[in-house]
């Protein structure tokens, strides 16, 4: 029934990274950062039909100090941006940020003076989820992809090597507006 039944001779071999990743993703507590319409869809994903509790995530911690994941759900106004950063700073490592909705990912339909054009101007984002608002199924898909990411996070020297690799790739990457030839 459980994992231990399936193990040959009751012994499981894994890596430290694997266990750490599994522990982190299996009980991944979100911090409440619901701002606007996306917050309602986030609440319904915690509701009975799209149940986030099956991923161990139904406890939305009010205090960022007890949370692992900040789901920025909704449009971040200029007045709210410092508050967002402060909440992010108050979270303890390891922490992840999921930008839910187009307003959090890129400013969305509100390309104006009042909205921060993407929360990655303020906090580092691990997962972008477009949609206006994204359906709860889309949110769960993004969370599961983030779980994959968390599961496969490297630790220690592997992590430093990975960081250097990502940085060089990003520095050599083609800028988005130069990626021509994609329209068929």
């Amino acid at each position: 029934m459980g994992l231990e039944e399936k193990l040959p001779s009751g012994v499981l071999l894994t890596t430290v990274e694997g266990v750490a990743g599994y522990m982190r993703k299996a009980s991944f507590w979100p911090a409440t950062f619901g701002l606007a319409c996306c917050a309602i869809e986030m609440m319904t994903s915690g509701g009975p039909r799209y149940d986030l509790a099956r991923f161990g995530m139904e406890v939305f911690r009010a205090s960022p100090r007890q949370a692992d994941l900040m789901i920025v759900a909704g449009r971040v106004s200029q007045k709210m941006a410092p508050v967002l950063r402060q909440i992010y700073d108050q979270m303890a490592e390891p922490k992840w940020v999921l930008a839910m909705g187009v307003c959090a990912s890129s400013g969305g339909m509100f390309n104006n003076y009042a909205i921060v054009q993407g929360v990655d101007h303020v906090v580092p984002v691990d997962m972008y989820l477009p949609g206006c608002p994204p359906r709860p199924e889309m949110l769960i898909d993004a969370i599961l992809k983030l779980h994959d990411q968390v599961q496969h996070t490297k630790l220690g020297a592997h992590r430093s090597a990975e960081v250097i690799e990502h940085e060089t790739a990003a520095l050599n990457a083609v800028p988005t507006s130069e990626m021509k030839g994609l329209l068929r």
């Binding site: 701002l35 449009r75 106004s77 709210m80 339909m109 509100f110 104006n112 003076y113 009042a114 909205i115």
Partner: peptide
Amino acid sequence: YLHTGIEKN
């Protein structure tokens, strides 16, 4: 804290 400038937009 949620001012979006909808009216101006």
